[in-house]
């Protein structure tokens, strides 16, 4: 045995193939990972495989036909466009709310903080019918807007308004921990160097929060683009005008056009994932620059 081992010393380090897992004395790895993989395979991979494979039944042309139909394109543009706009507003308002919750003490702060998560927990259908009523011709806000000649419900604007609630918690919850952990000495240092509050915020605090804001933006965008329940009641669903992309899928399915439905679904997932990848790339670039 010792003789066997000696050449290794003499020859320095014999490069050995790295095993696929590090050995550990903790038990249960095979069972836990096996169950995890089985579950991921059946619940996530198999369905996604179907989503990836089904659109091609009529070849590439079939997919293109399904996606490039004016009605589909309009729906995709509405879903992703409204989500994009709403995500920008969410970033601004989410930052403000996170700031107020983190920096100011006021009565009821804890309740307000908890309420921020309501769009996470509130079933989307509930939010949907509430918004449709609220902004409808007889609703508290809808009636007031109607007097000013503004129509929100059953228009593309309605989609945007509905997504304002959907994305908000993503931004607030992404920013809050970073804001809480922000070193107070950073702000103090900026102040001792003569920066006014606006300069301190714009040049010290905002850059530190930027990665979290981008994360929140991406999550709000991805969630908003796919949103169905909160939007469907207020959207109006007029093809080509106020019809959202998920509704196109539902309509295709009702016509048993599986390939068409899958094409739109795959396109939606692809756009969302591309957006997330792009955001990741931006963040990696930023973290390099920031040396973190």
């Amino acid at each position: 045995m010792v003789a066997l081992a000696t050449p290794r010393v003499a020859g320095g380090v014999a490069p050995r193939r790295r095993p696929w897992r590090e050995p550990s004395v903790l038990p249960g790895f095979a069972g836990a990972l096996g169950f995890t993989l089985l579950y991921v395979g059946l619940i996530i991979l198999l369905p996604l495989a179907a989503l990836a494979a089904r659109p091609w039944e009529h070849g590439l042309q079939g997919v293109l036909d399904a996606i490039l139909k004016p009605r589909t394109l309009a729906a995709l543009r509405l879903s992703f466009g409204a989500a994009l706009l709403a995500a920008f507003v969410n970033v601004a308002m989410g930052l403000l709310i996170a700031w107020v919750l983190g920096r100011y003490r006021f009565p009821g702060r804890r309740i307000v903080d908890a309420l921020v998560d309501l769009p996470f927990a509130l079933p989307t259908a509930v939010a949907g019918i509430a918004l449709a009523t609220l902004y409808g011709p007889n609703g508290w806000i809808g009636a007031a807007l109607a007097r000013g000649g503004v129509k929100v419900a059953f228009t593309p604007t309605g989609v945007f308004v509905a997504l304002l609630a959907v994305g908000l918690p993503f931004v607030v919850r992404a920013v809050q921990p970073v804001l809480d952990d922000l070193d107070a000495s950073l702000e103090e240092a900026a102040q001792t160097l003569g920066a006014n509050p606006v300069q301190t915020f714009a040049r010290v605090i905002l850059p530190a929060l930027a990665p979290a804001l981008i994360t929140g933006f991406a999550l709000a965008f991805a969630r908003g683009a796919g949103e169905y329940g909160s939007v469907i009641f207020i959207a109006g669903n007029m093809p080509g005008v106020s019809e959202i992309a998920p509704l196109v899928i539902v309509t295709r399915l009702e016509q048993y056009d599986y390939a068409g439905a899958a094409s739109v679904g795959l396109a939606m997932l692809a756009i969302s994932l591309l957006a997330l990848v792009a955001v990741n790339a931006v963040q990696v670039a930023m973290s390099r620059r920031g040396g973190r």
């Binding site: 991921v40 996530i44 991979l45 198999l46 369905p47 996604l48 179907a50 989503l51 089904r54 989307t124 999550l219 991805a222 969630r223 683009a225 796919g226 949103e227 169905y228 329940g229 992309a245 998920p246 509704l247 899928i249 539902v250 399915l253 048993y256 599986y258 439905a261 899958a262 679904g265 939606m268 997932l269 969302s272 994932l273 997330l276």
Partner: peptide, 25 residues
């Protein structure tokens, strides 16, 4: 992979099961 369903539209999350187990799945 575990995070992937978070970027999935709920409607697509329903659609995939129809693609597997629907009448023409």
């Amino acid at each position: 992979l575990i995070d992937l369903p978070l970027s999935l539209s709920p409607v697509v999350a329903g659609l995939v099961w129809v693609l597997l187990f629907g009448a023409r799945g």
